[in-house]
Simulated assay, not measured.
Amino acid sequence: MNRIRTAAVLAALALPIAAGPAAATPNSGVEATVLAQATVDGVQYVTRQLTIAPGGTTGWHWHPGQVYGVIRQGTLTHYSANCEIDGVYDAGDPITEETGPGYVHVGRNLGSEPLVMWVGYIVPEGQPLANDAPNPGCPFE
């Protein structure tokens, strides 16, 4: 019996180890300030001001709940997981985003001035406002 157990352990050790998931891409140059927050009937309502420095990025991520906002200053360049721009938003423009892990995206400030957004999140209590995701293969972060 010990021989069989030893052989099984050795066989398992000889198997190739599958690579783990790619690392998430962190945000860069982002400052977030909570403007308002409340939880009602198991739902979180959060409003934040996001400021992204020139050259900054939100990092790749997705949202478990509804997200909407308005650009207050600067320009947001928004990319989907196919590496293509799916929106360019200037001061005064509204923005909404799809929900769920099937909508991985990144926001970048490609301008020369800080980008300022007011963003509202509606998420189930206990869920994060966003979940980090790995770069889906785009030549930028």
Rank of each mutant, 00 (worst) to 15 (best):
P94M: 09
T47V: 15
D90W: 00
G42N: 10
P128D: 09
Y103I: 08
T39C: 09
A36V: 06
E97W: 01
P64W: 06
V106L: 08
E98T: 05
G42D: 11
A38G: 08
T39Q: 13
T77C: 06
V70K: 12
V30S: 12
G29S: 08
N131C: 06
D86A: 07
T39G: 09
H105R: 09
S112C: 01
E31S: 14
A133E: 08
E113I: 14
Y79K: 08
L110H: 05
V106D: 06
L76Q: 12
T39I: 13
I85M: 04
H61G: 07
P101Q: 12
V34H: 05
N131F: 15
Y45V: 07
L76C: 03
L110E: 15
A38I: 04
Y68N: 11
L129C: 10
P94Y: 00
P114Q: 05
G111A: 07
T75S: 03
V119S: 05
A81K: 10
N82D: 15
E84Q: 14
A32N: 14
V123T: 15
T47L: 15
R108E: 05
D93N: 14
A81Y: 00
Q66G: 04
Q37F: 05
T75W: 01
E98I: 00
P114D: 06
N109F: 04
I122C: 03
I71N: 07
T51Y: 01
A133N: 02
G59Y: 02
G111W: 09
V43R: 13
T77Q: 08
E125A: 15
G92I: 08
L50M: 14
A130Y: 02
Q49E: 15
G100I: 05
W60G: 12
T77R: 13
C83D: 07
T57P: 01
G74P: 00
